[in-house]
Design a protein around this nucleic acid. Sequence first.
DNA 1: GCCAACGTTGGC
DNA 2: GCCAACGTTGGC
Length: 164
Amino acid sequence: MAQRRYWLLKSEPSAYSFSDLMSEPDQTAEWDGVRNYQARNFLRDDIKEGDRVLFYHSSVDPTAVVGTAVVVRSSYPDHTAWDPDSDHPDPKSTPENPRWYMVDVRGEAGLPIPVTLAAIKANPSLENISLLTRPRISVHPITPEEWDIILAMGQEGGLGHTGA
DNA sequence: GCCAACGTTGGC
DNA sequence: GCCAACGTTGGC
């Protein structure tokens, strides 16, 4: 009965950044717009209130884990799917038969040092992290060990110092 | 901006 | 239900 507790969520900061999240009222936002079935299944079935989240910036230089968040509302239908004016409309998803799901997350704190993808790749302890083994998914399960390692790497003077 | 990886679609 | 074509993601 391995209940998952840690996740990594990707976002392109040009679309929605960690500082955008921290600027929200109560630092809370809907994690909408996921339109991939594997990611959807995690959101719908596995991510629960209280789970912890690594916020990852993709498609920027450098790509990196930049902060942490906590899930404050578990799975409910992504209403932006049936909003034709949203950024990710999907006419096949309806209120009666929703196809896509989302959660609400509340930003906690930025990491003192962003943990870059390069640093993650360079750490042998993280060679099996889902981020590396299953690329191109926007939601990844994270083990407690990986969570601890990445947070340690993100501290001043921590394991993230691969060089000067 | 390129392009590899891989998820999704749709014809058969 | 297979698989080729197509679209998207996302690192570089």
